[in-house]
Amino acid sequence: MKVMIRKTATGHSAYVAKKDLEELIVEMENPALWGGKVTLANGWQLELPAMAADTPLPITVEARKL
C-alpha cells in the first residue's frame, strides 16, 4: 500500500490515503527508519523499503502491512 512518511514535531508519522488514516510511528526496528518494521500508534505494523538514511521527507513509499 502507498504510505506517506513525514517528520513531525514529535517524531515521524505515516499517512495511508486509501484508509484516510494518519498515525504517529511509535516504534522502529531500525533507527534510520528504512528497511524494517515500524509500529503505528493504532497498532498496525508496516514493513518499509530499504532507502538511504538521509532520504528527504515527506516521501510516499510502497509499504507492506504485516
Rank of each mutant, 00 (worst) to 15 (best):
K2M: 14
V3I: 11
V3D: 01
V3L: 07
I5G: 00
I5H: 00
I5K: 00
I5D: 01
I5L: 05
R6A: 10
R6V: 10
K7E: 08
T8C: 09
T8L: 09
T8S: 09
A9V: 10
A9H: 10
T10W: 13
T10M: 13
T10L: 13
T10H: 13
G11W: 02
S13W: 15
S13C: 14
A14Y: 12
Y15K: 09
Y15F: 11
Y15G: 05
Y15E: 06
V16N: 07
V16H: 04
V16F: 15
A17E: 14
K18V: 14
D20R: 11
E22L: 12
E23D: 06
E23W: 15
I25A: 00
I25E: 00
V26R: 05
V26P: 00
E27W: 15
E27M: 10
E27Q: 12
E27P: 01
M28T: 10
E29P: 00
N30Q: 10
N30R: 09
N30V: 08
P31L: 09
P31A: 11
P31Q: 10
A32N: 15
A32W: 15
A32K: 13
A32T: 14
W34Q: 03
W34G: 02
W34I: 04
W34K: 01
G35Y: 04
G36C: 03
G36T: 04
V38R: 00
T39R: 10
L40P: 01
A41K: 08
N42Q: 01
N42M: 02
N42D: 03
N42A: 01
W44K: 00
E47F: 12
E47D: 10
E47M: 14
L48R: 00
L48P: 02
L48G: 01
P49M: 05
P49H: 03
A50K: 12
A50Y: 13
M51L: 12
M51D: 01
A52M: 07
A53N: 11
D54K: 06
D54E: 09
T55I: 07
T55G: 04
T55F: 03
P56K: 12
L57Q: 01
P58E: 03
I59L: 08
I59H: 07
I59C: 11
I59A: 12
T60C: 13
V61L: 07
V61H: 02
E62C: 15
A63D: 01
A63K: 02
A63H: 02
R64Y: 12
R64T: 13
R64C: 10
K65V: 15
K65P: 10
L66K: 06
